[in-house]
Design a protein around this nucleic acid. Structure first.
Lengths: 221, 221
DNA sequence: GGACAAATCAGGGTAGCCCCTCATAGCGGG
DNA sequence: CCCGCTATGAGGGGCTACCCTGATTTGTCC
């Protein structure tokens, strides 16, 4: 959280124009470590799976795949490596494009008209967990935000759970079996059972199906 | 848009703790021009009207006014000087606080746990028109954004299911046990099992938990 | 040092989930 | 009239989910 010093994040560039990638590489190489490039959906997925970078600079319009462009890359990779953040990059600032990639899991969206320095800043911010949006898109995002929020309160019931219970609960709610959770967290099935039992009791639920619904309604996913 | 060089934005600090303002002033003075400070709602409105800064660093919890805190300042000023951007600053990262100030017109929200350098960066980004959100809030904003947009397309997979299968599937996805579904539909448990098996096979899912997630994502509830 | 909570795991049990094969009955089309 | 699809259901088997009563270790607070 508190590194103000330069940290060389590992970045993958995805854009179908080689010239543009060259430009990016030249502008970003000073601050960031470019560990891979791709010019199509298939290449992108392959490179991302192999390199598992901190950030993927992802062009929205991309050849290959089933025609889904950058969103298709996101759909394939975003949930697999949660530590990898995606920053969408596009000439377009149309609402549709923004919506699509953000919904698919991108943590930010900048237009190609910005400078290399600004992209470099944005990459570092996204890597740090921030959401970054270009000026023209910022208003759009904020509008959507303002119009959509109804919930308001954060749950007190969550405070009842320990960190470990929360961790197990998330996986269970996501549909993992006990065995899968155990393997994922390097603990035994019996321990998973204990945590789940505790969670269910604390939340006053009776089975994992209710837990799934509970988590979904609270957007814990 | 293309200034990569330092531009000294004019900034007003609003926070009820003088010590904290001093800290901000010390950390930001190198990069930004602090043109005013305020410790209450009334002072803030006065200073902002007088100075018309580029950015207002606005604490969310603020004494004075009608108890509305930072949001009250926004409500009073945001629409008057459209060139002035507001960056909310708070110790809290609760959804309520975020929602309130963003809805009121803030262009970003950062927690006080970040470094001075990061706040400085954020101010410059907000001044440039970006929306900036701290890591823990970014996900929240993106969720709100995603959920606000209507999906549109209807699923082809649903057509694979017969009416009865659809009926059973909805109950299963809602968390009903086989026994409960059987009682609800006046059929035997075995028939429910048959339908569920067919549904799972047709949708290429492996168990009822995945079915629940599948249904939730498609808003079939 | 003792009290307490959290995390880890065992054994054993009931019930539910999910699969397989198989069977019956109705309803439509070629 | 047989064929295919759907709805219905039986029997059985393997695995999973959930609960219970235990236990040990670790760390924290007083």
């Amino acid at each position: 959280m508190s590194e103000t010093t330069e940290q060389t994040y590992r970045v993958v560039l995805v854009d179908d124009h080689a010239i543009f990638r060259s430009g990016l590489r030249a502008d970003l190489a000073a601050d960031l470590q470019i560990v891979g490039e791709a010019g199509s959906v298939e290449q992108a997925i392959e490179v991302i799976e192999r390199e598992r970078p901190d950030v993927v600079l992802l062009d929205v319009h991309l050849p290959g795949g089933r025609g889904g462009g950058g969103a298709e890359v996101l759909a394939s990779c975003a949930h697999l490596f949660s530590q990898t953040k995606f920053l969408a990059l596009s000439v377009s600032d149309s609402a549709q494009d923004v919506v699509l990639v953000i919904r698919s899991g991108a943590r930010g969206y900048v237009t190609k008209s910005v400078s290399g320095q600004e992209i470099s800043d944005a990459v570092r911010r996204v890597a740090g967990g921030d959401a970054v949006f270009s000026p023209r898109l910022a208003g759009f995002v904020l509008d959507a935000f303002g119009s959509s929020v109804a919930s308001g309160q954060i749950d007190e019931q969550l405070d009842l759970l320990t960190d470990r219970e929360l961790q197990v609960m998330r996986l269970i709610a996501r549909g993992y079996s006990y065995k899968e959770v155990a393997k994922e967290l390097f603990i035994s099935i019996k321990t998973v059972e204990s945590h789940v039992s505790n969670v269910l009791r604390k939340l006053q639920l009776s089975n994992r199906h209710e837990l799934t619904r509970w988590a979904v309604e609270r957007k814990i996913l």
